[in-house]
Design a protein around this nucleic acid. Structure first.
Lengths: 111, 111
DNA sequence: CCCTCACGCCTAGATCTTCGATGCATCGAT
DNA sequence: ATCGATGCATCGAAGATCTAGGCGTGAGGG
């Protein structure tokens, strides 16, 4: 398993977060809600997974954060995608496509 | 993330191994070759991942093992699927289907 | 007025998987 | 005789996720 593939064995979370942030600046709490709702309740991201993930993605230069006000007038940390993050998202989506094809190849083999 | 879903975040390896073994009794070394070849070189399972996985699956009662001779006249540990293992494979394949649908839902969202 | 729940951020420790490295033994081919 | 493939295995490091906790604000019901 090379590095890119291992990313997926370790989880799809990073990809999902990148994708959601790519739709427009959004804060952490809303990201988890959005992922849950977009996946029809399948993914229920825990905060203990989400926040470390966000910091990880920021450290790698894929996301940048700034504090803004919510519609409800609260302060929240809004994340946006960097140029690097956009490239990473594309890469990772291509890898996901290949991975799910590979899995399908194996799973569909008749017994 | 519930337990079943987490299985996938942690990796597809267990499912792939179960599936390959479901095709007929096969030994560890051959499993890794088969996975590689069936996935068109995408998955290259390391021995340091494979053997622990096999022991894990055996401990859970999904695989059983016995020593047999290879076509080349060597001894090797052949794994077969138990009844429990077959059920587990079905469960896990259904979960995979739902997971990849959920991922697709999110990834396909237009920006 | 108080209490609870949703919002919104975060970390620490435990647990699990995977990987790279290493070890051992046999066999066939050069 | 040596080297690569076959075939088994373990160890330690690295990483991701989860559970469980903590902190603060604000709105609404009793």
């Amino acid at each position: 398993m090379n590095e890119d593939k291992s990313e997926f064995l370790k989880g799809t979370l990073d990809m999902l977060v990148l994708k959601v942030v790519a739709l427009g600046p959004i804060h952490g709490y809303a990201i988890s809600q959005r992922i849950r709702q977009m996946s029809k309740e399948f993914f229920q991201v825990q905060q203990g997974s989400l926040y470390p993930a966000l910091h990880r993605l920021e450290d790698r230069g894929w996301l940048k954060a700034d504090w803004r006000d919510t519609e409800t007038g609260r302060e929240a940390k809004f994340y946006s995608l960097t140029a690097k993050g956009r490239k990473q998202l594309e890469t990772v989506m291509r890898t996901w496509a290949r991975l799910s094809d590979a899995v399908a190849l194996i799973l569909r083999t008749a017994e």
